[in-house]
Amino acid sequence: TTYKLILNGKTLKGETTTEAVDAETAERVFKEYAKKNGVDGEWTYDDATKTFTSTE
C-alpha cells in the first residue's frame, strides 16, 4: 500500500510517499524521515486517503 506524507515544517515543506504493509509501519518511516529533516510537528492521519500530515 502506498502512503503519503505532507510536511508543513517551518524550514521544510513538501511531500513524499512510501510503500508499507500498514499505516503503523508507514508512520514509523515518516516520523524517522521528518526527524532526519529537522521537522518536529503535530501529526494527523487520514485513512481514506492514506495520508499523514506533520505541521509545525
Rank of each mutant, 00 (worst) to 15 (best):
N8L: 13
E42R: 09
E15N: 07
V29A: 08
V29S: 05
K4G: 02
T1A: 10
N8C: 14
A48N: 11
F52I: 00
R28N: 08
V39K: 02
E15S: 10
T1F: 13
T44L: 07
Y3C: 02
G38Y: 05
D47E: 14
K50T: 03
L7F: 12
T25V: 07
L12V: 14
E27Q: 11
D40C: 13
T53A: 05
K13R: 12
T44D: 09
Y3K: 01
T11F: 14
D46N: 11
T55Q: 07
A26Q: 00
E42G: 05
Y33H: 04
K10S: 11
T17N: 07
R28C: 09
T55R: 05
G41P: 05
K31L: 08
T2N: 07
L7P: 00
T1S: 11
L12A: 09
T53C: 06
L7R: 00
K4M: 07
V21G: 11
G9Q: 04
A23I: 13
G38F: 06
T2W: 12
T25A: 13
Y45N: 01
G9F: 15
V21P: 15
G9P: 03
T18K: 04
D47L: 07
Y3T: 02
E24F: 09
I6A: 03
E32A: 12
T1Y: 13
A23Y: 15
Y45R: 00
E27G: 07
S54A: 15
V39F: 15
Y3R: 00
A48K: 11
N8M: 11
T1E: 12
T51M: 04
Y3V: 02
G9W: 15
A26M: 01
D22P: 00
Y45A: 01
F30T: 01
K13E: 05
W43G: 00
A26C: 02
L7Q: 02
E19K: 13
T18E: 04
E32D: 11
A20G: 03
T53N: 05
T51R: 02
A23D: 06
T51E: 03
D46E: 06
D22N: 10
V21I: 13
G41L: 07
G41N: 04
L5M: 04
S54H: 09
A48G: 08
E27M: 14
N8F: 10
R28T: 08
T55H: 07
K31H: 09
D22F: 03
T44Y: 10
T16G: 04
N37Y: 15
T2Y: 07
Y45P: 00
G14S: 14
T17M: 10
R28M: 11
K10E: 10
V29W: 14
A34N: 02
Y45H: 01
V39W: 14
A34F: 03
D46I: 04
A23F: 14
T49N: 08
G41Q: 04
T44G: 06
F52A: 00
D40I: 13
K13I: 11
G14C: 15
G14V: 15
Y3Q: 02
E32W: 06
Y45F: 07
